[in-house]
Design a protein around this nucleic acid. Sequence first.
DNA 1: ATAAGATAATACTAACGAGTAATATATGGT
DNA 2: ACCATATATTACTCGTTAGTATTATCTTAT
Lengths: 199, 199
Amino acid sequence: MGKRGRKKGASGEQSRALLLSIAAEEFANKGYYQTKVSTIVQRAGVTQPTFYLYFKSKEAIYQELMDSFSKGLFDLTSKSRLEPGIDFNSLPLRITKGLTGIFTFFSENQNVTRIGFFNSLEAEVIKKQLALQIRDNLISEVKNGYFQTDMDMGLIAEILVGTIERLTLTKLFPGIKEPEEIASEIVHLFLNGMLSKRE
Amino acid sequence: MGKRGRKKGASGEQSRALLLSIAAEEFANKGYYQTKVSTIVQRAGVTQPTFYLYFKSKEAIYQELMDSFSKGLFDLTSKSRLEPGIDFNSLPLRITKGLTGIFTFFSENQNVTRIGFFNSLEAEVIKKQLALQIRDNLISEVKNGYFQTDMDMGLIAEILVGTIERLTLTKLFPGIKEPEEIASEIVHLFLNGMLSKRE
DNA sequence: ATAAGATAATACTAACGAGTAATATATGGT
DNA sequence: ACCATATATTACTCGTTAGTATTATCTTAT
């Protein structure tokens, strides 16, 4: 008796994926504490115990989303490491390509990016990591004599992270600018500064 | 009978100020939702109803702290507006001074800054406002022929805000660098870029 | 056809945390 | 000396929300 039990055509993987996707949206829009499991399951058209069939806890599904973002970003940045001995004049383009990759990834994964880069406690850790990676790249470029050597590369790396962060939120996500556009404007500014008329 | 009632030497203003200060610390460290009124009052050595004697709600005390930050920052930035017709060569120093003012304010008000600039929903609004003010200044400086004119000043303003944000968190708050130091390095980078050897 | 395992629902618990009613003690002006 | 007011406490309520015990239905391999 009753309308309990497994539904026709019910597929576990599908339910799980749906929950993940909706949860990403909720977490991205409302943050961790304002996001309710009850809302997630309601929107997914399942019940609370179904949620706990696939995820150990609210914390766990959040972590899974975080990890997904974290891994994606890490794969990206470790791929875009510069091999030594690049042509001098192609460096700006290389840097632009690397930045474009990051912005494209963010753009294609808005919800998890919001979670992993803006809303979470671990966002700081991730940004710190990104800054370190950027700093290492900058230092190796200084060794090649490309930049001024009297600058603090750790500082510049942090400035770049702040720049990426801010422009992602204000220009990329609202669709005001494309990844390539943002990347090339950043590179232009950071290389030449605002006073330059040099070419 | 009992130990109820007003305490000897109890001063309302003092209790209120203490609650505000502790609340600022809690909100700054844990964010809004993880901060508990019960913890605040416990740390302040008063009870819950005492809290509600001075603040309408948890939301209200949070708003009060937010407003304090918001007002402080606004006073600062509106004061540092550039009057027209400044000497060409003194502009970098002027900009550095303005930035130093902001960093000093942040440094002297860490907790509310964390709340108003990093943890809150309204942080976005505040940053947006700051970006607009910076953009206006930049544009007026372009009119004076100081910068290249082919750059998107809205974009640069956002980059500056991101820069301020990030360096506040990673260099200023940990005490790694002083306000003046950070300000002058920013100005140097943004004016000259990383390629420049010009002087 | 049937048992085992997978997928789901109903109806609950348990805890936490914001906010309050009622009550008591100190202080300061008259 | 006394009362009005400011300051504080004890001991609650009440809603919200994460998580669960139990039961039911579907699916698939044999």
